[in-house]
Every structure is written in C-alpha cells, then in structure tokens.
C-alpha cells in the first residue's frame, strides 16, 4: 500500500465507521467593524506607528511629493534610480527618476535602496498592510529585499478587522501581510525591529476623495 493510502486508511480507522461529526462552528465573533472611516483611518495610523513604522497622511494629489519627502528623510541624498517601484504603481505616485521593477533576477533587488508599492487591503485594528502580488503590490521579492519599503494606502482600501480583510483577498494569489518593519522577539522575548526584511517601513495614507 502506498504511504498515501496507508495514512488515509489509518485516519478512517481512527475515526471509526460511525464517526460523530461535531457541531459546526458558531461565528458569533465580530465579522465587521462598523466605525466610520475617519475613525478607522486614525486607528490604522495609531497601530502602524505602534510597530515603529512612519506614517504620513496626504491628499490625493500629494502622493508623489509625500513619497519623495519620506524617502529623502530616510535615505538622505540618494540616487533616484535606486528606488524601485512596482510595475503597476500609478504614474502620479512615482517618485521622480525611479526605476520600474521588471523581470530582472529577484536577488538584484537586494542592492536597491528602497521599494515603493501599493497594497490590496489595510487592516485598521491590527495595523496590517496586505500585498497581493498584483502589478500594484509588485512581486514578493520587491517588498522584501530593499532595506526601506514605502507602501501607499488609499482610504478605500482600509477595513476594520481581519474577517473583513480576508473576504476581500484572493487566496490563490501570493499574499504578504505586513505589520510593521521586520522584527524579532527571540532574545529574552523583547521585541526589536529590523532583522531580515526591510528595516524601515514608511506608509503613505491617502485621504478619501472630497467632493
């Protein structure tokens, strides 16, 4: 008998011929967070900053200048071409002179100073940004290898809690949920930021359209 058939038959023996099926899970936990958007945006900022990331809020026509300002504050004087942007990042968001990611070998991204991406969803309650491998979020290596990551989040992407976020996401895409910069608690269970992933996380939160 193959290992597969063996393991499956062991499971069937273990459960017995008249296996009892326990009651279905009751989902009486909070499925949505119905607080107004402006409250959720404040919560998101509070939670992301709690992870020691930097957040800047801006209007819809200020994304490029805000991204550039944060990059300059973090990197100092830098070669603009050393900043790589996701291929689907809207043109008005891109810093002047930045490089668009293409199908170069992923490891080459390690030499770059910073990456700029969009996100698919942001979760206010946990301060989490979710990247989904789409052209706007970029491939996974882009948000991993450069030491500084800038994520642009629009207000309509912000949801309250984890159940709302998962409902918006496609489980067949490669997803990365980012909550602050890379960190570890492995020495005496005290959290320190900055290990293998980007040591700096900058978040640009774009205000909703006003009309």
């Amino acid at each position: 008998m193959s290992a597969r058939d063996d393991v499956l038959s062991r499971i069937r023996s273990a459960l017995g011929p008249d296996r009892s099926v326990p009651p279905e899970a009751v989902r009486d936990y909070r499925l949505t967070d119905d607080r107004p958007l402006d409250v959720l945006l404040d919560v998101l900022v509070d939670r992301v900053e709690d992870y020691r990331a930097t957040v800047a809020r801006c209007g819809q026509d200020q994304v490029r200048t805000t991204v550039q300002r944060l990059l300059t504050e973090t990197l100092g004087e830098h070669d603009p071409a050393d900043v790589v942007v996701a291929p689907g990042l809207p043109a008005p968001w891109r810093p002047e002179g930045s490089t668009e990611d293409d199908d170069r070998p992923a490891v080459e991204l390690a030499a770059r100073a910073a990456a700029v991406t969009g996100v698919a969803v942001a979760i206010a309650e946990t301060g989490t940004l979710v990247l989904d491998g789409s052209p706007t979020s970029g491939r996974r290596a882009l948000s991993l290898l450069p030491d500084c990551l800038v994520c642009v989040v629009t207000a309509d992407q912000v949801v309250g809690n984890v159940p709302e976020a998962l409902a918006r996401l496609d489980p067949l895409r490669p997803l990365t949920m980012v909550s602050g910069p890379s960190a570890t608690s492995d020495i005496e269970l005290e959290r320190v930021e900055g290990v293998h992933g980007p040591r700096t996380l900058l978040v640009v939160l774009v205000a909703p359209a006003t009309d």
Partner: peptide
C-alpha cells in the same frame, strides 16, 4: 486563527509577516 495565533504567541496584534501561497505563481517565488 490569524486573530488567535499572534496575540497568543508573541503577544502582538499581528506578527510582522504572514505569507500565504497556493502552488506555484509564475514569475513570483
């Protein structure tokens, strides 16, 4: 489970990185 696990293990609202993937994604990973 993504609410239960991080708060119970490292005592964080969410752990810094959660990765999910399904099989092979062309051009990524």
């Amino acid at each position: 489970f993504l609410q239960l696990l991080p708060r119970s293990s490292t005592g964080e609202r969410m752990n810094p990185y959660t990765s999910t993937w399904a099989g092979v994604t062309p051009g990524d990973g």
